[in-house]
Amino acid sequence: MAVYTSLTQDDMLALLAEYDLGDLVSFKGISGGVENTNYFVNSTQGKYVLTIFEEFEAEEVPYFLDVVAHFKKAGFNVPAAIFDQQGERLKSVKNKPAIMVDCFNGDELVSTSANACQQMGKQLGLLHKVGQSFPDQRPSHRGVAWWQATSQSLNAQLPEDEAELLAEQVASFDTFLEQANTLPMGTIHGDLFYNNTLFDGDSLSAIIDFYNACHSWLIYDLAIVVNDWCTDRASGNIDMDKYEALITAYRAERNLSEEEIQAWPHMLRVAAMRFWLSRLEAWYGAINDPERLAQQHDPKEFKRILQARCESTPAL
């Protein structure tokens, strides 16, 4: 959510005039992430967030807007796109697709707790049940084909030990894929790190940033969440108090199949590998641009997580 596209006061005034959201009071760019440009927009009617998509073409965005609308209709606090005066949700800002959404109360977590993990587990179980009824089945733009191609393209740039670890994990999961066709699937968030939620005090108030949503294994999404929410960052190991709180709450909302239970160690490893790989791709892609490199996440964090999951994984 770094600011890649700069807007002036006149730009924002012109955009807001196309909505029934009151008059502009102030706006401010949001720093933090790496994919899209976001602004807080304060008007006489309320507080909103403008998102400008930096990686997607306009024809790709409606899928994600439909996903969020599906979850909002089911009662989740999610940032659905606001319609303008002409009944349009997708706008063009500086020749890039853009949307305006409500700004929810709450802040990003600095770190997780067992209580936060329990709330996330419950919401994720409910989210997965609702996601199974979403009709469109879009594959992930960072799925199997991507990690196979990207791991090969990065091979020559990586230190030998990292290249070997990555190749080993990709090959291991390729083998697992041959027997993974019975795992329950649905529309998942795909990037539900704790900085993609808001907490109002101790209460989960919203789930945001659905731009990695796709049709995939539900257990894979659970593994993504566990690797982020329940991990000790220094060691990469799982904090079992947080883990048990999250898994217990999840299973209270959605039953796991025997196939999912057996696949769990594979999914924890592949979820770690996927985010290590995406961070490696971004890191090496920005290696000659110091300003851009400073905005990237350190890949070593997910290398530690992957190595820890290769050593041991907790049971479901």
Rank of each mutant, 00 (worst) to 15 (best):
Ala2Arg: 05
Val3Ser: 05
Tyr4His: 09
Tyr4Gln: 07
Leu15Arg: 01
Ala17Glu: 14
Val25Arg: 00
Ser26Tyr: 09
Lys28Arg: 14
Ser31His: 08
Gly32Val: 06
Gly32Thr: 06
Ser43Asp: 06
Val49Arg: 05
Val49Pro: 04
Glu57Cys: 10
Val68Asn: 05
Phe76Gln: 03
Asn77Asp: 09
Pro79Val: 10
Val93Asp: 01
Ile99His: 02
Ser111Pro: 05
Met120Gln: 04
Leu124Gly: 06
Gly125Gln: 10
Leu126Ile: 02
Val130His: 06
Ser133Cys: 08
Phe134Ser: 05
Ala145Ser: 14
Thr150Asp: 06
Glu164Phe: 12
Gln169Met: 14
Gln169Asn: 15
Phe173Glu: 11
Thr175Lys: 14
Glu178Gly: 04
Phe193Lys: 04
Ser205Glu: 00
Ile207Asn: 01
Ile219His: 00
Tyr220Arg: 04
Asp221Ser: 09
Asn227Leu: 02
Asp232Met: 07
Ala234Pro: 01
Ile238Phe: 04
Lys242Asp: 00
Glu258Leu: 09
Ile261Lys: 15
Gln262Phe: 12
Ala263Gly: 08
His266Arg: 12
Leu268Gly: 02
Leu268Asn: 07
Phe275Asp: 06
Trp283Glu: 04
Gly285Thr: 01
Glu291Asp: 15
Gln295Pro: 04
Lys303Val: 13
Ile305Leu: 02
Thr313Trp: 03
Ala315Gln: 15
